[in-house]
Design a protein around this nucleic acid. Structure first.
Length: 421
DNA sequence: TCTGGGGTCCTAGGACCC
DNA sequence: TCTGGGGTCCTAGGACCC
């Protein structure tokens, strides 16, 4: 038996946490470059703002509705997520942290799952301030669905729905569009509809073998899970990462090669930090650049190049050197670049990486110590306190973030102030 | 003016082996 | 008319997730 606990409008709820005055007001949170709406409170959803909508298209609507608009603050969301997961871990011996705002719990053997679900929702709310919904079912796919329904008010006594307690399951499934299921999006949805499979009930009744032949094993599993046959297990330990990526859209177009190099230097350096913090090493680095894909007046240019290392590395110096060398090969004069990134494919655990037979004696060790110092300084005094000189060649690419709340649970200066009396 | 970032899994097809 | 059988590895691209 699975429970899926999902935080309601997570980023919006985080921003609201320290501002009770935002209760009842529409709240939205924007993506990295203040570009898209990535979280909406219920009031914002009611305004008809779609998920992922470009902000500039809805700015006027939001202003008229007196909405609160925030740039994203991942340090805050990450910290609140950890707190929520910590509370959830107290309710089940086996949990799977599925995403920043979702967690599966193993409820096998629980006598009254609905009562436990209500207790979970109450406790998370009281201890962290974040509202959640709980879906309970014998498969993950049904638990996801039950969670959606719980948020819509199907639960008899609160934001909790146990699928097996639901009357007329078939009627409910018949009213769920096939694209609302976990794992089915627009493409597969359209193809399923063309075969007359438009809702969850029709998918459940379809022949698994035929689904497999036309759509592959993923859709077959979903159909089986709708019947209550569990195909997806709880994964307590996340498998090791296979790639590391750092990429950003630019706050303003970049045309100077030195500034493009400055941007990928920052990305490669950040990628190195990620590698070291996760104990990984990269055998190669891909750097990519692109112009504005939405500009219909100019030809779109996107290109990438991959460079290999003699042995897998976690040294930022090597990553930065490869990234800048790569970007020099990609750069075309006259283009206005809007985005670039660094991708480290096929990463391996650092202890499995062989040493470089041809490196100077002691160089490996010196490089490791340099990186240890870099990380220690930046951990203590803040990201990019110590950085590569190449980054000084320009910072016009940096993101717009004009609406940050400044609230933090991880910096003294950002803590909320409470006045009594 | 203005459009995110970071991932995973699956499949088909090519290339190769004995 | 007619051309074996069984397998692995790699890659690109599609599709999906939050």
């Amino acid at each position: 038996m699975f429970a899926l606990v999902d935080c309601n409008n997570f980023y919006a709820s985080c921003e609201r946490l320290f501002r009770p005055s935002l209760e009842g007001r529409p709240v939205v949170v924007l993506s990295n470059n203040d570009g898209c709406v990535v979280a909406r409170s219920n009031e914002a959803k009611a305004l008809g703002i779609p998920m992922g909508a470009p902000y500039f298209r809805y700015a006027a609507v939001l202003r008229r509705a007196d909405a609160a608009v925030f740039s994203s603050n991942y340090a805050l969301y990450g910290d609140l997520s950890r707190r929520v997961m910590q509370v959830l871990a107290g309710f089940s011996p086996r949990i799977e942290v599925y995403s920043i705002d979702e967690c599966f719990l193993d409820l096998t053997g629980v006598r009254d799952p609905t009562a436990l679900g209500l207790e979970i929702a109450r406790t998370v709310r009281r201890w962290t301030g974040i509202p959640v919904a709980v879906g309970i079912a014998p498969t993950k796919t049904l638990a996801k669905l039950a969670n959606r329904l719980a948020k819509k008010g199907y639960g008899p006594t609160g934001p909790v729905l146990d699928w097996s307690e639901l009357q007329d399951q078939d009627a409910v499934l018949g009213a769920v569009p096939v694209e609302d299921l976990w794992g089915i999006a627009a493409r597969s949805g359209a193809r399923l509809r063309a075969l007359g499979i438009a809702d969850a009930l029709a998918l459940r009744e379809a022949h698994p073998q035929r689904l497999r032949a036309s759509f592959g094993v993923v859709v077959e599993r979903i159909a089986r899970e709708l019947r209550g046959q569990a195909c997806l297990a709880l994964e307590e330990v996340a498998p090791p990462r296979r790639q590391v990526m750092v990429s950003r859209s630019f706050g303003a177009a970049v045309s100077a090669p030195a500034e493009l190099r400055a941007a990928v230097t920052a990305f490669a350096s950040r990628a190195g930090e990620k590698l070291r913090s996760q104990g990984l090493a990269a055998p190669a680095l891909t750097v990519f650049v692109q112009t504005n894909p939405f500009d219909t007046g100019r030809a779109f240019y996107a290109n990438a190049v991959t460079l290999g290392f003699p042995v897998p590395t976690q040294d930022s110096t090597a990553l930065v050197r490869a990234a800048t060398r790569g970007v020099d090969r990609l750069f075309r004069a006259g283009d206005a670049y809007r985005k670039a990134g660094v991708l480290l494919p096929d990463v391996v655990p650092a202890e499995q990486a062989p040493a470089d037979l041809f490196a100077e004696v002691g160089e490996d060790d010196r490089a490791r110590r340099r990186m240890a110092v870099l990380d220690a300084v930046n951990r203590k005094y803040g990201r990019e306190t110590l950085r590569f000189a190449g980054q000084l060649s320009g910072s016009g690419w940096r993101r717009r973030s004009e609406r940050g709340s400044g609230v933090s649970t991880t910096r003294w200066a950002g803590l909320a102030t409470v006045r009594a009396g």
